[in-house]
Amino acid sequence: MRHIISLLMENEAGALSRVAGLFSARGYNIESLTVAPTEDETMSRMTIVTRGSDEVIEQITKQLNKLIDTVKVVDLSDGEHIERELMLVKVRAEGEWREEMKRMSDIFRGRIIDVTDKTYTIEMTGAGHKLDAFLEALDKSALLETVRTGASGIGRGERILKS
């Protein structure tokens, strides 16, 4: 099962490598990992997307909790949550592509943020599967480059992750 895990860590040098090292040392799967400081600059927040059986996910959260720099861990998949990812896509925008790409971007609520004679760069946010769907829908020969941030997640409503 796919899980999205959120953690708050002390904003210490090496915190990221402790997490990355933990996943590789114990052979856990890691689909994406995002990290940035929070409004409290002494802490950073990570979102990790991983896959595993219930037992493996239980070990992952326990092992993450065990890291001395970890302030808090939640498995967002345990409850209602929102997940967003940012993607930048560079596509061909010459001749007949130019209209088509604009239309596709609009349908998927993307924004064109850079324009040249030959290319568009489209910005798109959404849950991972929405971004996947956009890439699926595009003609492969028009696709020049993609870059994705990996998912960020947050609990719905009153579900708050704080130290």
């Binding site: 070990q59 326990k62 092992q63 909790n65 065990k66």
Partner: peptide, 8 residues
């Protein structure tokens, strides 16, 4: 004392 030892 270590939760990660349990049910590992």
């Amino acid at each position: 004392i270590d939760p990660s030892s349990i049910s590992k």
